[in-house]
Design a protein around this nucleic acid. Structure first.
Length: 406
DNA sequence: TCTGGGGTCCTAGGACCC
DNA sequence: TCTGGGGTCCTAGGACCC
């Protein structure tokens, strides 16, 4: 199996992205605390973060923490333009770019040494180009694996460059708090604390069995591997969207079924247009099979209702019919608890590219498979291949399960 | 703390078929 | 008639990310 022994993966992450665009475009905001968004903080400049303001924080609380902050409404078009300009720099650096979100990406720069220099030199050039060409600060982490590069950029923020040398990986990783790990949120962090693990090194010392029993097979095995610096996922280009969605907060006041139906019809219409590719660029003539209604109630609990159509479609009346039927089934609970958010997702895009094959593993699957494991879910399409190769690496199960099945 | 909007992936279980 | 395994598809919920 291919083993990388050199730090050639870059994780490039713009700093306080929306807020930095605002400071770039309005000199009066530079050096001052800036909050983007009103009711909820979408982004905070580092000056605002110094007061304790955080993304997703309630707007009133944020203003109380940082009375000097300038609060500006979001300008999504400006951020989209800035993102395109930054990604142009990424793609000019290497063709192997894997976008993660509007403001971050992985770049594979192995093999560019002769023409562009070492990975850390390339990272430095990238940072300077983003600063001069686009006018934004960016932090880059450089490491042998995606995971370590991602952690490195987080530790290196803001406006930094941090290289994790292959022989210094565990020394870098193990002192870090478990919350630093990509994929560990509040719930998982709480479970790890309950196991006595507060640092990544503690997690590495736990062994796989307790992690699997506390976190489930996928998360447990994944975390165990990451804590030991193991992560074979390659940088991959051309990943396609698996779902698109739209949602709307409704506030607390009562909405009649008729009113909800109007909102739903508007949402379906918007998503239908996106699906067919008019307006936004994430659709481009795709079809979907599964319609998911998303609800949030006044007590902050959530629910979903979904329906899978016999054939994939982009036909708005068909989608609306399915959405209406789902809303109908949910009316009693809406009546009971009070609805505060209504959303819709269109999933199973392009129908069959997410087929699930469930294969049993038996004694013939390989003696290396010593973990209690009932079945592997292989999904054909990008996500599933990931899982399968990861399994192959972690367990030494050398991929005979993977191919041919098509 | 009275909490936005857009996503990804994983888990569990039911219905149904052979 | 009952039990069981194996396989597929679908639904619902949850954790997490930016």
């Amino acid at each position: 199996m291919f083993v990388r022994d050199e730090a050639t993966i870059l994780h490039a992450d713009l700093d306080a992205f929306y807020a930095s665009v605002e400071q770039r475009d309005d000199p009066r905001l530079r050096g001052r605390p800036v909050i983007v968004g009103g009711g909820v903080v979408l982004a905070a400049s580092y000056e605002a973060k110094a007061c304790g303001v955080r993304t997703a924080m309630n707007g009133r609380q944020a203003r109380a923490l940082c009375p000097a902050a300038r609060v500006v409404p979001p300008r999504m078009e400006a951020y989209s333009e800035a993102s395109k300009a930054v990604f142009a720099v990424f793609r000019d650096t290497t063709p192997l770019v894997e976008p993660i979100s509007i403001d971050e990406a992985f770049l594979e720069v192995g093999g560019l040494r002769k023409i562009a220099g070492s990975p850390s030199e390339i990272a430095g050039t990238l940072r300077r180009r983003v600063a001069t060409d686009v006018g934004l600060p960016i932090t880059v982490g450089v490491a042998r694996t995606k995971f370590l590069a991602k952690v490195a950029s987080g530790v290196g923020k803001p406006d930094g460059l941090l290289v994790v040398p292959p022989d210094g990986e565990l020394a870098f990783l193990h002192p870090l708090a478990v919350e630093r790990l990509w994929g560990v949120g509040a719930v998982t962090a709480g479970k790890l604390h309950a196991l006595g693990a507060r640092t990544v090194g503690d997690v590495a010392g736990l062994g796989e069995a307790p992690l699997v029993s506390f976190l489930g097979p996928a998360a447990g095995r994944h975390l165990h591997a990451l804590a030991h610096g193991l992560d074979a996922r390659p940088v991959r280009t051309g990943t396609t969207r698996r779902s698109i969605g739209s949602q709307r907060a409704l506030g607390r006041r009562y909405r009649s079924p008729e009113e909800l139906d109007t909102i739903l019809a508007g949402t379906v219409d918007r998503l239908g247009r996106r699906l067919r590719g008019s307006g936004r660029e994430d659709g481009h003539g795709r079809v979907c099979r599964t319609v998911v209604l998303r609800l949030r109630f006044a007590d902050f609990t959530r629910a979903t209702r979904s329906h899978t159509l016999p054939v994939a479609t982009d036909h708005t009346p068909t989608l609306l019919g399915a959405a209406r039927a789902l809303l109908g089934t949910a009316l009693p609970v809406i009546e009971d608890k009070g609805l505060t958010l209504l959303g819709l997702s269109l999933a199973n895009l392009d129908g069959d590219d997410a087929v699930q094959l469930e294969l049993p593993l038996d004694a013939h699957s390989g003696p290396a498979l010593d973990v209690a494991l009932d079945a592997v879910r292989l999904r054909f399409g990008t996500a599933s291949v990931n899982r399968a190769t990861q399994l192959g690496r972690d367990e030494g199960l050398s991929v005979p399960l993977l191919p041919e099945h098509e």
